[in-house]
Write a protein that binds this DNA or RNA. Structure first.
Lengths: 218, 218
DNA sequence: CAAATAGTGTCTTTGAGACACTATCGT
DNA sequence: ACGATAGTGTCTCAAAGACACTATTTG
């Protein structure tokens, strides 16, 4: 237990944050442009160092708050990344968290202490050979896969629409995450048991109004 | 970046190991009896401190080797645990890994450097109010859930039987993991596409011999 | 009333579940 | 021949997929 302690070059622990949203019919992730070396000028995931008096989940919540100004949004731990040289400066183990936020809630605060943040199209990013800082492209790729997988058997996609939503809106989100179009009637049958009607509807469009639903309790 | 550095009380990183096997018709996990404080005399998961020149996966493989003498067995990262006070001595973030090994391969080396290791029935352990060191009971519980979940849509259960196995053997493992009995004919139809026959069969039993299969490539 | 999108009824297809049967060993 | 376990054929039923239809708004 004692022979391998190297306090002077100990391991740092950080959380990296995948903040996903759906905007313009696309899955997007929040990235920042790095101001400092290493990887200065490149795009990276936002992240914070975990404080020694702070739980991992709390560090993630703090990072999300600092980056987006939002509290109480959905997030879950994704995976921990711990290759030796993933940070060229020193040894960092990063615990990645994935957060989902409806585009409407994501107000950009331009004059934020953090450098310029932007929403980047995940599909384009992963297809292109755009380089990202550190191993962040791998993290995004894994997050996208997890999200895609969980859409099928959980209600995770509901975190990407407003609290009250129409079924066509929700269906678009499903289609974007799954990367394929769905049959309207079947989609509705599938999600109907999970939701409940509100008294509201859309209006003003030149077609039949759409009822607003919310996720049912329990 | 500098104001929160507390090198003297930095965060330690460890991996905890869930070594699962099926023995005596039961899912079991490898536990050790702790020799030292804290929690001296209590059961705990084996684990190792992550070295600063060692990747997380490598630390897990090393821990498995040290604890079981086995290399090249299946394992995957489970989850990272990071509550502030999970270790009363100092701040430790633990990355839990789950390993699966056929009971036959698990030779106990009594004269091992590690303290007495034993296989403990997971169901009994989680039902009873037996206390485990640290938050290890939570880790086992999560591992059991993950295993149960993945059985249904992956071939993960194959790692708990020998390379060549009979379908009745495999079915027992599925039943133990899922906690319910399965219909033979349906089970066979489900796994048939995944496996290929060998030329071997069981023999010596007072009934029809059972063909041995292996997991099909690709 | 035409264009546009919301929402429904129902047939088809696929796979899970249930059950009854046949097959092959040792004694 | 009998007990015991391995292995198969087929019916049933429920969910997923496909398609055609009706409904309600604005201009």
């Amino acid at each position: 237990m004692k022979k391998n302690e190297k306090r002077s070059v100990g391991i740092s622990v950080a959380v990296d944050l995948l903040v996903f949203t759906v905007e313009q019919e696309r899955l997007k992730v929040l990235l920042i442009e790095r101001a400092e070396e290493p990887f200065a000028g490149m795009l990276a995931l936002p992240g914070v160092a975990v404080r020694s008096d702070e739980a991992l989940d709390d560090a993630a919540a703090r990072g999300i708050l600092e980056e987006t100004g939002l509290e109480d949004i959905y997030f879950e731990q994704l995976y921990s990344f711990g290759k030796v040289d993933r940070d060229p400066r020193n040894r960092v183990v990063s615990v990645a968290y994935m957060a989902l936020v409806p585009q409407k809630d994501l107000h950009f605060h331009a004059g934020q202490r953090t450098s310029a943040a932007e929403l980047v199209d995940v599909g384009q990013l992963l297809d292109s050979d755009t380089g990202l800082a550190f191993d962040h492209k791998d993290i995004i790729s894994l997050g996208r896969e997890r999200l895609k997988g969980k859409v099928e058997y959980t209600t995770i996609a509901f975190h990407l629409v407003d609290e009250e939503f129409t079924l066509p809106q929700l269906q678009r989100v499903y289609e974007i995450l799954l990367g394929k179009s769905l049959y309207k009637a079947n989609f509705r049958k599938k999600v109907m048991p999970l939701i409940e009607e509100t008294e509201h509807s859309t209006s003003g469009d030149a077609h039949r109004p759409s009822k607003l639903y919310r996720l049912a309790e329990v």
